[in-house]
């Protein structure tokens, strides 16, 4: 009996300490990525290359999803609003939900599963095939050469992707609301413009997507760099990237929203 309790406690303690140790590693890794960012920024073509892989290759999924999310918002929003006789407020509903929440959050979730997993898998495989080790032996720091460019590419791509998602979504809402259902085009845009504030809504949305960009790419590069150098290890790390960054996005979104839109 005593034994069982002791073992359970030991187990719990071991889990907690190993989690905390990993968090410590991750923080140190984050700091090192920033310290060794000189190469990524000075030789910017390294980062441009990674923007292609993280940003450009995510374009299709972001644009298509944005369009559909906006179209669904148009349909659902109209259905609800017309009951209260305020269907011309559709523009506000579509724009605010996209710019404040759905744009940054859904784009970040898609980014995590499209680009984040790819980053983890790539770095993990480079580790498993000793490419990172080889780089070290060639007197090139892998954090500066491999990790930092990917990190900055993610941070640059994420806000742009979120903006594209929102813009595409508003266009989708416009297509369904104005072209298909027949809400008045003038009031669709003017109501939207009157209610969406640049600083309050759009800048805050961009700040959110920037934070998500940092969180997702940080998790992705760390999981890749820290993965077990085996096939199993890399696949596990890829899964962890998607799961951890999705949870982190939603948690960060709650915290940011609480700070940004409090009581206004």
């Amino acid at each position: 009996m005593d034994n069982v309790i002791t073992r359970a406690l030991t187990n719990l303690g071991h889990r907690v300490t190993s989690r905390i140790r990993r968090l410590g590693f991750a923080s140190r890794f984050f700091a090192m990525t920033l310290v060794y960012s000189g190469t990524a920024l000075k030789r910017f073509n390294l980062t441009i290359r990674e923007i292609y892989f993280t940003g450009v290759l995510s374009l299709i999924i972001i644009l298509v999803s944005g369009l559909f999310v906006g179209m669904v918002l148009g349909l659902q929003g109209y259905d609800t609003l017309q009951r209260y006789g305020s269907s011309e407020a559709l523009g506000i509903l579509v724009a605010l939900s996209l710019v404040r929440e759905l744009g940054p959050v859904v784009a970040a979730l898609l980014f995590a599963s499209r680009a984040g997993s790819a980053i983890t898998a790539e770095i993990g495989l480079m580790k498993a095939t000793e490419q990172l080790s080889a780089m070290e032996m060639m007197a090139v720091n892998p954090i500066a050469r491999v990790v930092a460019p990917r990190f900055w590419a993610g941070i640059i791509s994420m806000p742009l992707l979120a903006a594209l998602f929102s813009a595409m979504g508003i266009f989708g809402g416009y297509l369904v609301g104005v072209q298909l259902i027949g809400v008045d085009e003038g009031s669709f845009w003017s109501q939207m413009q009157a209610s969406v504030d640049f600083r309050e809504d759009i800048v805050n949305g961009v700040i959110k997507s920037f934070v998500f960009g940092v969180v997702v790419t940080w998790i992705a590069v760390f999981e890749g760099y820290d993965s077990e150098p085996t096939a199993e290890g890399v696949s596990g790390a890829t899964t962890r990237t998607v799961v951890t960054s999705s949870l982190a996005i939603l948690a960060a979104d709650f915290v940011l929203t609480a700070f940004m839109f409090r009581g206004v």
Binding site: T129, E130, Q131, A134, M135, M137, M138, A139, N141
Partner: peptide, 18 residues
């Protein structure tokens, strides 16, 4: 790093940058 520039290492499976 300065010392390593004067060393070369051949890894077990080459470890070429893929």
């Amino acid at each position: 790093y300065r010392l390593r520039r004067r060393m070369g290492m051949l890894f077990q499976f080459g470890a070429l940058f893929t």
